[in-house]
């Protein structure tokens, strides 16, 4: 049995490369064990080879994300990846907390949107270094975009970097950017079953912020039920209830960030 992939190949030659543990090529005359080569009808023997790759599809992104993470760790930059559906208040929340956090630590922002620099302009007004990533048709940020963006940002050592991902509760969950923590934001104008509808995102997140609490009296939203739903998907999730508009609950989250910065 092959010791790398566990396949039942016996006695067949295997090509390997020094230093590449995952890489190996089984050379087999009959080609492939799986059905589709036979369906295919390519009967020329010895001309078809199967390469066993066992490679994570997101391998390239994950490698780059780890490179980003190493860079951030070396410079002691604490990175938050903010995720939510469009309109739940990511940018407003940043506008609320950045002025206070800036008193303690340098802050920088990476903004992700399909189009426009509207959000970056709002951040610039706060006096923080900011760069906008416009993904065009893309639905998420990936590690390469972050890698390129940080080269263009003048980041300070011992600082905080907030990445505001593209507004989308599905795709960004899959792409590691090299952040320290993922923060998912929902608002009371959405449904309290959102964590159940988009479980991947809530499963990946470290922290959930329920925003627009000032609107709670006017909407049909059960905050406790929402929290319960979120905890069913991810029982490690930390939970904050805030209003970026009135500032309610924002201090608690700020203190949480400050604590994390101390531990970081």
């Amino acid at each position: 049995m092959c010791d790398t992939c566990g396949c039942a190949s016996e006695g067949g030659a295997v090509l390997r490369k020094p230093g590449l543990n995952d890489y190996h090529v089984h050379i087999s005359e009959s080609g492939h064990n799986h059905e589709h080569t036979h369906e295919h009808g390519h009967h020329h023997q010895g001309r078809s080879r199967t390469l066993v790759l066992e490679q994570d599809v997101l391998h390239k992104n994950n490698l780059l994300a780890e490179r980003n993470r190493g860079y951030f760790e070396a410079r002691n930059i604490f990175v938050l990846n903010l995720l939510s559906s469009p309109g739940s208040g990511k940018t407003s929340l940043l506008e609320k907390i950045i002025p206070a956090l800036q008193q303690h630590i340098p802050v920088a922002v990476i903004e992700g949107d399909q189009q426009t620099t509207n959000d970056a302009e709002r951040m610039q007004a706060l006096g923080v270094p900011v760069i906008q990533i416009n993904t065009g048709s893309g639905c998420h940020l990936d590690a390469l975009m972050i890698n390129s963006a940080v080269k263009e940002l003048e980041l300070h050592d011992n600082s905080l970097l907030c990445i505001e991902n593209v507004g989308n509760l599905v795709c960004p969950a899959m792409f590691d950017l090299g952040e320290a923590l993922k923060v998912v934001i929902i608002s009371v104008t959405e449904g309290d079953d959102k964590p159940l509808k988009y479980p991947n995102m809530f499963h990946e997140a470290d922290l959930c912020i329920l925003n627009k609490m000032d609107l709670l009296p006017y909407v049909d939203f059960d905050a406790n039920k929402c929290r319960e739903n979120a905890m069913r998907v991810n029982h490690h999730l930390e939970w904050f209830e805030v209003s970026a508009k009135t500032g309610e609950g924002v201090d608690a989250w700020q203190d949480w960030i400050k604590n994390k910065l101390k531990q970081h």
Partner: peptide
């Protein structure tokens, strides 16, 4: 989510 193998000609 893995690319298990490919068959090349």
């Amino acid at each position: 989510f893995v690319i298990q193998s490919i068959t090349i000609e």
